[in-house]
Computed example of a mutant assay.
Amino acid sequence: MHTTEPCKRIQGLPLRLKAALISLCLLFLGACGPGTADNRPADDAWSSDASTQRSAPSLSASIQSFLEEPMGDAQRTALERALDHGGKVSRTDYMAAWNNYRQCMVDKGYNVPPLHMVNGLVVELMHFDFSGMSDQQQMKFHQDQSACLEQESLYVASAYSDSIVNPELYVDLDVAMVDCLRRHELVPVEYTVAQYRKESKQFTDMTFDGENLTQQQSYERRRKAYSFNFNDTQVRTCVAGVNASAIADELESWKPL
């Protein structure tokens, strides 16, 4: 039995971190070529129907806000070190944080969590297999996982991912996704958040009644709802960092106990 449930204990976290934490615990089942857009277009038509609110004015300011939260010493040290490098977490510290999270879970009696990587980014989404686990065990698992994430990796992972896929620190993840695609000239200049949302809804709502498709075949067909090339390496980086549910079929199931 495969099941997915939201994490507990996320009240009080910044909105962007709530989204990151929930994505680790919740799995929603549910091509135009590159244009000639400038990396930073002068107009804001692409986002005119969406909020371009930012969680912080800079990567360093974002990390400063993270440091106000309770966390383990190793994660705090990594963030403080990032402040000496323009708010950018090193890859060494990023992977160390994830390995510390995994060890934390093992120390609490769980199997080693998998790390699914896409172009150097850990996909912050998990597909759980809770077969054989009681409701009480599942509740304790969510509590333990939240504690390990907050202590060891949550803030470092967010800072590292932001520096790669969302350096403008947009709170609206649809805006962050379109910005990532536009910065790397993966969509035409006229591509907008509204178009991305329309394509995402088509991706989510698409069904194949009467067709005997495997899950892999279903996801491949559904991805065609998007007008950009899903096989492009940089597209996959943007997707992994912002909209991991679109590559959910690639994730291995994790049986915690």
Rank of each mutant, 00 (worst) to 15 (best):
H2C: 04
T3Q: 13
Q11G: 12
G12K: 07
P14E: 09
R16D: 15
R16S: 13
A19L: 12
A20R: 13
A31S: 13
C32Q: 12
G33Q: 12
G35S: 12
N39H: 10
P57W: 02
L59W: 04
S65Q: 15
P70T: 09
P70F: 08
D73H: 07
A78P: 02
A82E: 00
D84K: 13
H85D: 14
D93P: 04
R102V: 14
K108R: 15
G109P: 03
L121N: 08
V122Q: 06
V123Q: 01
F128M: 09
F128L: 10
F130Y: 10
F130P: 01
Q137V: 01
Q143W: 02
D144R: 01
C148P: 04
Q151G: 00
S153H: 00
Y155Q: 08
S158W: 07
S161E: 14
L169C: 04
D174G: 01
V178I: 02
D179N: 15
C180Q: 06
L181K: 08
R183N: 13
R183S: 10
L186T: 03
V189A: 15
A194Q: 12
R197N: 09
R197H: 01
S200T: 06
Q202L: 11
F208D: 06
N212H: 12
Q217W: 06
Q217V: 05
Q217I: 06
F228I: 03
F228D: 05
A240E: 10
V242P: 00
V242I: 15
N243L: 11
S245Y: 14
A248V: 07
E250A: 09
E250M: 13
E252C: 02
K255F: 08
